[in-house]
Amino acid sequence: MTDQVNLTFDGVTITAAAGQSVGAALTDAGIRSWRSTRRGDRPRGLFCGIGVCFDCLVTVDGRPNQRACLVPVRDGMRLESGGLREVSARG
């Protein structure tokens, strides 16, 4: 039996096996899209699954544009869906 970790996606708790990628955890939770495109506002999730296509970008612990297929899950991780990065004013 593998270790389980808990993380949240848009505030909802999902569980994953330790060592899985964020993309795999979302897939196992039945979540297939977590980003909308800039031009057409279309849903996107995993496509290439190996870090090449950047379709699966997700906000991880407040850091936008992380590739869900490359980032391993961690207990307590916060995932957020979204689109473009917001640049803070006068940061």
């Binding site: 899985q20 795999a24 999730g45 290439c48």
Partner: peptide
């Protein structure tokens, strides 16, 4: 092909081999 649920075959394979996830 831009709909979620369309994936590269290698991505489907990576989910299976590394994460035991079925896409």
């Amino acid at each position: 092909w831009e709909l979620p649920g369309v994936m590269a075959a290698g991505g489907v394979q990576a989910l299976l081999k590394a994460h035991r996830s079925v896409a």
